[in-house]
Design a binder for these strands. Structure first.
Lengths: 136, 136
DNA sequence: AGCTAACGTTGACATTTGTAAACGATTCGG
DNA sequence: CCGAATCGTTTACAAATGTCAACGTTAGCT
């Protein structure tokens, strides 16, 4: 079961996390620079967000020099999955298919990605045929 | 281009919207009942959410009897797409494929949905092979 | 050893969100 | 035609969020 993560990421916190996930690990300076530049934030703002992320358990720290090295406490994909589940849970009847279609269209995917997706679709189709849980 | 919708839906507001989208249109009573039951909200809470949704422009109203009929101002899919774009925008490098895979796996899709997705994948594969468009 | 740049912590403040009661208007059953 | 059931609006209030400055600490250069 998924550990009920009650403290969800806010919009601003997501931006910071994306930076740290991309860098794998980062020092405050790097986050100030990248995230600050990207969103027009002052270092002060980024500091607050980093602190909140640590408090919420999304970032771990290791002391180095006068500061910390920040690193993600969870993989990006696991957090993304949770967010995706929430999104899917909000999808009204009949919108799931079109939603996935849109995402597929607007995503940059490589050959390998497309292959896995193809395979998943094939499997799903197969299990649709044998699956007698379809009541139309 | 996507009209910069500054007033995003909050978690609670999404729940209410999903109910109204599913019903196509609804009177306060119905929303109290369905959404209230689903989330343990009092009618008072649902009232507040409905009002905020009207103020934010997500719901339109038509006077009927002593109250309103509420109906979505935008299609569910268009709002979902915006949310999906936000999610994809937060996806760290290399996580987009796995993210889509997860969503595909955990979504209930019918034959038609799967067919459209399959086609999209085929097209994407084609354009990957021949057309090496690296433009923006 | 002393100074300074950089870091984390605290404090701040306006806005949004979650949750709900109180109040006033209005419609419908009788 | 009158009162009860509803509905929408107003008010409330704590917690979360977005943004940032001030302050105290410390590492690293000189």
């Amino acid at each position: 079961m998924k550990s009920k993560r009650q403290n969800n990421l806010s919009a601003a916190e997501w931006k910071v996390m994306r930076v740290v996930w991309d860098l794998k690990k980062a020092m405050a300076r790097e986050v100030y620079t990248v995230a600050g530049e990207e969103h027009g934030w002052t270092p002060a703002t980024v500091k607050t967000l980093l602190k909140r992320l640590v408090d919420k358990g999304y970032l771990n720290t290791t002391k180095v020099g006068n500061g910390f090295v920040y690193r993600p406490a969870h993989s990006a994909i696991s957090i993304l999955r949770d967010a995706a589940d929430t999104l899917l849970g909000n999808a009204a009847r009949g919108t799931t298919g079109p939603l996935l279609a849109h995402m597929l269209e607007s995503s940059p995917l490589d050959e390998a990605d497309l292959d896995s997706l193809q395979q998943l679709i094939d499997e799903k189709k197969k299990s649709l045929g044998s699956d007698d849980s379809k009541h139309k």
